[in-house]
């Protein structure tokens, strides 16, 4: 459970608040999307969720504990953050050690470390690289490795900062599958992204941020109906939502993926024959 109460934040030495009066509650088993323009404060917000940044005013509580009271390592064990740029974390000599790094930091037993690393390698199709240098992997593979290295310690919250950047279509589909699987295990996944199509496929609870203020927090279908807010945040609509709006009232529901859109259209065509 992440609870944010009237959080204000400004970076030391700067005069303006980057986050203003943020109030949030995120429980277990949720998928949450966070969207907003460049510099709106998304990365700053998620850095509060494991205590990397502490509020200037207000509180952030993780499972009831104020982030000011414990170390970043303590909260990270429950809240796994995957940053955008793999270049900022990869340092080990082998892929295996890269994944084992965090597990060792958290003080897991040797046996468990071996088991977890093996699982992560297999799950992300990285087993064949286990003894090669992670620096030699392709950009997409590096990103997968970073996700693997976080999932390996099995945190309750998984926060992904722009996970789809530089990923091909196949990897994006896989990522969606992984996220959906994590949700079935009662984990919470928070995705920061500019990719509306990707977000739409996840059908998350969607939080829109503009200039450090939450301007909308709700079910993603209702958010994408709100034209004024979308314009304010500089967001376009997913193509399936546009399709729905073009055809409304011929189809009554927003299709959540291509398969659903396909069957809706088929029904429509058959009906009009």
């Amino acid at each position: 459970m992440i609870e944010v109460e009237s959080l204000y934040f400004k970076y030391p030495l700067s005069n303006d608040y980057v986050l203003k009066d943020i109030n949030l509650k995120i429980g277990l088993g949720e998928v949450v999307g966070i969207m907003g323009g460049n510099g709106s404060g998304k990365t700053t917000l998620i850095k509060h969720f494991n205590g990397l940044l502490k509020p200037t005013k207000g509180t952030v509580k993780i499972f009831g504990k104020d982030t000011r009271e414990e170390s970043v390592a303590y909260f990270s064990k429950k809240v796994g953050l995957v940053f955008q740029n793999p270049g900022h974390q990869i340092f080990s000599d082998t892929v295996w050690n890269e994944i084992a790094f965090a597990l060792k930091n958290f003080g897991f037993e040797e046996e468990i470390i071996n088991k977890r690393v093996k699982w992560a390698l297999e799950f992300f199709n990285l087993t064949q690289y286990k003894d090669t240098s992670p620096l030699l992997l392709s950009g997409g593979e590096k990103k997968r490795l970073c996700l693997a290295s976080v999932l390996a310690w099995n945190p309750d919250f998984i926060i992904l900062d722009e996970p789809t950047v530089g990923q091909d279509f196949l990897q994006k589909e896989k990522l969606i599958e992984i996220i959906k699987m994590l949700i079935t295990q009662n984990k919470t996944v928070i995705v920061v992204s500019h990719d509306v199509e990707f977000i739409w496929l996840l059908q998350p609870r969607l939080i829109l941020i503009s200039n450090g203020v939450i301007v909308k927090d709700g079910d993603c279908k209702s958010v994408f109906k709100d034209n004024a807010i979308l314009e304010k945040c500089g967001l376009t609509k997913p193509q399936l939502v546009e399709l729905y709006e073009e055809l409304y009232p011929l189809i009554e529901q927003m299709p959540v993926d291509i398969v659903e859109a396909h069957s809706m259209l088929l029904k429509l065509l058959r009906g009009s024959k």
Binding site: L52, A73, H88, Q89
Partner: peptide
């Protein structure tokens, strides 16, 4: 700035 980002990344992986 890079250094700040890197430290944040590694601290999120339990490095103290």
């Amino acid at each position: 700035l890079d250094a700040v980002q890197i430290i944040d990344s590694q601290r999120s992986r339990g490095l103290e």
